[in-house]
Write a protein that binds this DNA or RNA. Structure first.
Length: 852
RNA sequence: GGGUGAUUAGCUCAGUUGGCUAGAGCAUCUCGUUUACACCGAGAGGGUCGGGGGUUCGAGUCCCUCAUCACCCACCA
């Protein structure tokens, strides 16, 4: 294969992915220690966003690395039916057609959404492929697959039997637009200005933001110690209302803050969470005033059929007319719960729902977490997860939507209290023991079933996959769903399987837009990964997106990093072109990477260090650091130094070995370009994806340090040349073996006319080396360098002073590690030598200055 | 109200257990077409690591404190 001048990802990526897939490399190999990670399932019918790109990249880097380490690596893909999310999308489409979900029965709606999802499926998987994810497609799982449903039902039944699940009428966060309840965690809050109305209630004045709920009031509450109201506690008082006088109880409760408003509060148990709590304590009736459509009901009399917001104003006005409204504080700020999808104000609504007793479910999980059974990256998130599980309230898992897994609970049509579990949930009506049961119309919260993901994907409990690959090694997902998903997976996984579901949790932060804002569809600043892949290639996206990123921290998307990564691919490409050109078509002695020159030793040592560093970083999930090492080893060490040096004396074995090593190190990060190049290596028959992680070959340290000396000389010459605007100067030395041996190399790399031996030095003496050598410049030109030399003299002098002071400090010498002290000593010696060189060079100038 | 994180070069960000002259990419300036690459090469400039205290031989890193920003949790009638 003749390689083009620049790497064109478009030309190779699809082909390479096919090659991998057809080779079976994505499947875990038989036997061996497993490494397992399951993909957080992207929405089946939506496009991947940049967060998925980050997620997939991190997981795939880990998997490819572990695969090359010889593990039986499994990256298991999936697709999410995404319950409510998808239904919302479908509802929008219905709206455009002038229809509403309420035009259909839940079963009809389910069928329609199913078709909708089927029609749009496949796109997402294509995009996962385009990102290079090395997933085992044969094990792909959809969150509505029979396996998932079956296992979820099994858990529901087990929890039912363990009394971890209960059905009850409770206040639930309810969106009157979508007409479904939510879990606490799904409600978002907005700070708003809400008028605070002061209502007259018999002897009380009480402050409320919700006068329209007064028809559901069943008490007035005061603080037990509030002297103002002592006489009323426990009494029933009479107050004037809109429709004449009414009676209401006065209760005392610690919850009431005497300092807020008037210290007296109306209690509406059916529409306020705190009031509900108080009602439980005082045995108060709960009267519904608001219907599921968000309208007031008959309880509100003349206001029946009015939406809440309108009723609020009208009720206040009516109260005012009757002289029952004392005042309105228009500037009151409070936080209002809203639906995270549509922004509709969440109404606390009394509903019969299924709840999970989270205290009991979470307790064993908390215990395991405290025993450090799961390593968190970043580590601080462990503590936060524990705190969350310790304080979490019971979890409402019923959703009044169509798109989801039906709840396998049936109610006796004759006896509302008679609920049974039955997994024939595909039927609406079942008969049992001569009785008729009707299925609960609701579906599960999608997070209830996705809480099973780490094992349901492995065909829990009987499939050998489960026994082999559970628990997972790595769960990688966004930090935004730590509680929503990760915490619940841990609790549910432990409950169902008896083992925590994964050993490591890696939480990536959010990818923000370039200007640092949140990326969102509504802001119109989302970035399509497909576009990045089209313009820069998949590898560039992978590396650019993980570069400089820390777990748990949000960071802006930086296109310059994608550019850099694209250029990096091209650098690799051209290294390959050079190496393959240099070693020629007949090369086949790849095992003889015998170092000869100092440069050979030096690059072997560099490759060894890079391998060690990257291995350590990848083992510890420090992706960005590993990439950084790769980048600079490839670019700075191999391309800029080794290749340039090898133009003087090419060592085919080391060049080939170096290229192979770099391709291996690069492969987890840049799988496409590395594999593409690998396929051009004549002596390699297999696939890079299936090859092994490099084993470091050590170079000789002393030989390597000779090359470091040469680098110092070359760098100094380049610097002086640039500073003095020299071009093609000459270097003289007085019998230096180093310079005699490597004159050609230095001349080439420092862009000199030549290097030659003389009996007496003249010109500008180099100060970075122990060798006696001079750049051939006239006194006039050399003198113009004096300023620079003096700067160096000052800096070097400071450095010497600092190190001397340090070594004079007895505490340092006795407390600091021995190696460090030794290093300081040798650095001091080197520094002193350099200073001496600089000093004598400056003195020489002074001498010649007097001559003039 | 409680909690967590962030504050490092013009911009976006690294910096693992405290270790000596704090890094990267991009941007800037100067030069350069020497048989891989202009998606390039060489050189250079740019930071009192948010402020103030403390611990230590040594602090970007640990402790205290203040400030600013971000996020999470609770949720105010």
């Amino acid at each position: 294969m003749k390689l083009g001048k620049t790497y064109d990802p478009q030309e190779y990526e699809a082909m390479i992915y096919d090659l991998w897939e057809q080779s079976g490399a994505f499947k875990p190999k038989e036997g061996g220690e497993p490494f397992v990670t399951v993909m957080p399932p992207p929405n089946a019918n939506a496009n991947l966003h940049i967060g998925h790109a980050l997620n997939n990249s991190l997981q795939d880097i880990a998997v490819r690395y572990q695969r090359m380490q010889g593990k039986s690596a499994l990256f298991l893909p999936g697709a999410d039916h995404a319950g409510f999310e998808t239904q919302v999308v479908y509802e929008k489409q219905l709206t455009q057609e002038g229809k509403s979900r309420f035009d259909f029965s839940r079963d009809e709606l389910y069928a329609r959404i199913y078709e909708f999802v089927q029609a749009n499926r496949g796109n997402m998987e294509k995009q996962v492929r385009a990102m290079g994810a090395s997933v085992d497609w044969s094990r792909a799982m959809f969150t509505l697959d029979e396996q998932v449903v079956k296992t979820t039902y099994g858990t529901f039944k087990k929890m039912w039997e363990d009394k971890l699940i209960y059905r009850g009428e409770r206040l639930v966060n309810y969106c009157t637009f979508h007409r479904t309840g939510f879990a606490d965690i799904e409600v978002s809050y907005e700070e708003r200005t809400s008028p605070l109305y002061y209502l007259k209630y018999g002897p009380f004045t009480l402050a409320t933001t919700r006068p329209e709920t007064k028809f559901g009031d069943t008490a007035v509450a005061v603080h037990p110690d509030d002297k103002r109201y002592k006489e009323f506690i426990g009494k029933v008082i009479t107050a004037e209302g809109l429709n004449g006088p009414f009676e209401i109880r006065v209760v005392a409760d610690q919850y009431v803050d005497p300092a807020f408003g008037t210290g007296a509060v109306k209690i509406t148990p059916a529409h306020d969470f705190n009031d509900w709590e108080i009602a439980q304590r005082h045995n108060l009736e709960a009267i519904r005033v608001i219907n599921h459509d968000g309208m007031l009901n008959h309880r509100a009399g003349q206001f029946e059929g009015m939406p809440v917001a309108e009723a609020r104003i009208k009720v206040a006005a009516a109260l005012k007319d009757k002289g029952l409204l004392e005042k309105i504080d228009e500037n009151y700020r409070n936080r209002v719960g809203v639906c995270y999808k549509c922004g509709t104000v969440i109404e606390p609504m009394l509903l019969d729902q299924w709840f999970i007793d989270m205290k009991r479910l979470a307790a064993p999980a908390i215990k395991e977490l405290k025993r450090n059974k799961i390593a968190f990256h970043p580590t601080q998130k462990l503590e936060q997860t524990i705190t969350y599980l310790e304080t979490v309230k019971d979890w409402n898992i019923s959703r009044q939507i169509a798109w989801g897994i039906p709840i396998p609970a049936f109610q006796n049509t004759e006896d509302p209290d008679d609920w049974i579990f039955d997994d024939r949930a595909n039927q609406e009506i079942i008969e049992l023991d001569g009785k008729t049961y009707r299925r609960d119309a609701d579906v599960f919260d999608t997070w209830f079933s996705s809480g099973h993901w780490p094992f349901v994907t492995l065909d829990y409990p009987d499939n050998p996959d489960f026994k082999r690959f559970y628990p997972n090694d790595l769960m990688e997902t966004g930090i935004d769903i730590l509680y929503q998903w990760v915490a619940r997976m841990i609790a549910l996984g432990l409950y169902v399987t008896g083992v925590v579901p994964f050993k490591n949790v890696y939480l990536h932060g959010m990818v923000r837009s370039e200007d640092g804002r949140k990326m969102s569809k509504s802001l119109g600043n989302v970035l399509d990964p497909q576009q990045v892949i089209a313009s820069h290639g998949s590898d560039a996206l992978r590396m650019g997106i993980i570069s400089g990123r820390s777990p748990g921290l949000s960071a802006a998307y930086d296109p310059s990093k994608i550019d850099a990564a694209r250029n990096f691919c091209n650098k690799l490409w051209n290294i390959a072109r050079f190496v393959e050109d240099t070693i020629g078509d007949n090369y086949d002695g790849r095992h003889k990477a015998t170092p000869e020159t100092p440069a050979d030793h030096w690059i072997l040592l560099k490759l060894q260090h890079a391998t060690e560093k990257m291995t350590l970083d990848l083992e510890n999930y420090r992706f960005s650091e590993a990439y950084d090492t790769l980048y600079h080893t490839v670019w700075d060490d191999f391309a800029d130094w080794y290749i340039e040096a090898s133009k003087s004396s090419p060592n085919h074995g080391v060049l080939a070995y170096g290229l192979e090593t770099l391709l291996k190190l690069a492969h987890p990060f840049a799988p496409f370009v590395s594999e593409t190049i690998w396929q051009t290596l004549k002596w390699e028959k297999g696939l890079l994806i299936s090859s092994s992680w490099p084993v470091a070959k050590a170079g000789n340290k002393e030989q390597a340090s000779v090359f470091s000396d040469l680098q110092a000389i070359i760098t100094e010459i380049r610097s002086i040349s640039r500073n003095l605007h020299l071009s093609r100067s000459h270097l003289y030395h007085t019998g230096s073996q180093l310079l005699t041996a490597h004159g050609e190399l230095i001349a080439r790399m420092a862009h000199l006319k030549g290097v030659s031996e003389v009996s007496d030095g003249k010109g500008l003496r180099l100060t970075s080396t122990k060798e006696n050598c001079w750049l051939d410049v006239d006194q006039e030109t050399a003198r113009s360098y004096l300023g620079k030399l003096e700067e160096q003299q000052t800096a070097e002098g400071l450095s010497v002073e600092r190190m001397k002071a340090r070594l004079a400090n007895k505490s340092y010498v006795s407390n600091a590690p021995k190696e460090l002290v030794a290093e300081t000593k040798s650095n001091l010696a080197a520094s002193e030598h350099r200073l001496q060189q600089i000093n004598s060079e400056i003195d020489a100038f002074a001498a010649t200055a007097q001559d003039v």
